[in-house]
């Protein structure tokens, strides 16, 4: 799989990352190399194999739904880069 500039930009947008001129070349080269390497899996016939989607031995063991104290406002906001007394602050979304 060859990762060109267009595909790189598309994937980067989905991942909310960006690459400038100096880093884009290296990322394209690394991705192309690694994806070509993982395509080795195409040598295997997997037609009659079901995908393995969970590794847990027991599925969804849920605790009782009891009301308990949760993370306090103060603790939840403690690490925020920008906040006011009640909310996380982000740049304006709606004009």
């Amino acid at each position: 799989m060859n990762i060109d500039k267009d595909l790189l930009n598309k994937i980067a947008h989905l991942a909310r990352l960006e690459f400038d001129e100096s880093t884009a070349e290296e990322m394209m080269a690394d991705m192309t190399k690694i994806l070509t390497w993982v395509e080795k899996l195409n040598e295997l016939d997997t037609d009659n194999v079901e995908p393995l989607t969970t590794m847990s031995h027991e599925v969804n063991v849920l605790r009782e739904d009891e009301v308990k104290p949760h993370l306090s406002h103060e603790r939840a906001l403690k690490n925020a880069p920008k906040k006011d007394s009640d909310y996380f602050r982000v740049p304006k979304v709606l004009e």
Binding site: L14, L35, V38, L41, T46, V49, E50, L52
Partner: peptide, 21 residues
């Protein structure tokens, strides 16, 4: 993000889940 993107999901991600089994 690439292997999970709509156009490549089956060819890479699902394939690898099968090989995992």
């Amino acid at each position: 993000t690439f292997v999970l993107s709509a156009s490549y999901y089956d060819a890479y991600y699902t394939k690898a889940q099968k090989v995992r089994r």
